[in-house]
């Protein structure tokens, strides 16, 4: 969470008065150049028969103009500060999702589900270990019931080599 001083507008020191707009513009400008590079080999065609490259380049041009407008706005008028990126939330949320991706096929939902939930649970400072462990097991059991038993989705449930392969 950003502190109140960081998100409010305060008197700027230096040429960048609206950092949020300014840096958003820079990122967009970089992305625009990337699109031009990525679509450089696509034929543009003519107005009568547009080629695959025309639309991306028209859009990238528009995006580039918006990026410039954001940069100029960031230089000219006082605007919002950059928001603080929190580390804990995104790291654990994404870690949970990524772990699920890599474990679902090898061990199945019965293990991948609780793993993803417990790991992502640490994204919040309020999480209590015992509570999340129990809750994740209950939720996983409910999901197995819903997705596998009721909806019959072909999702791996429990895979332990030599023991289970459901």
């Amino acid at each position: 969470m950003s502190s109140p001083e960081a998100s409010s507008t305060r008197t700027p020191s230096g040429p960048i008065r609206g950092p949020q707009s300014f840096y958003a513009g820079l990122v967009l400008l970089a992305f625009t150049l990337f699109v031009f590079w990525a679509s450089k080999d696509l034929p543009g065609g003519t107005m009568k028969s547009m080629g695959p490259g025309m639309m991306p380049r028209i859009l990238a041009t528009g995006l580039g103009l918006c990026a410039l407008a954001l940069i100029i706005a960031g230089l000219r008028s006082v605007g919002a500060q950059l928001e603080r990126w929190s580390i804990r939330g995104p790291v654990f949320v994404l870690a949970g999702v990524i772990l699920f991706a890599f474990t679902i096929r090898s061990v199945g939902l019965a293990l991948a589900g609780p793993l993803a939930m417990i790991v992502s649970g640490f994204a919040s400072p309020e999480t209590k270990t015992k509570e999340i462990v129990i809750f994740s097991l209950v939720m996983t059991a409910a999901c197995v019931g819903l997705f596998w038993y009721a909806l019959k989705l072909p999702i791996p449930i429990l895979r332990i080599p030599g023991l289970f392969n459901i």
Binding site: V93, G96, I104, G113, M117, S120, G121, F135, F147
Partner: peptide
Amino acid sequence: RLMFPAILMFCCIGIYS
């Protein structure tokens, strides 16, 4: 704190299926 891990798991299962 309990809702969001469940939401994430639903998203994972949903998109995987």
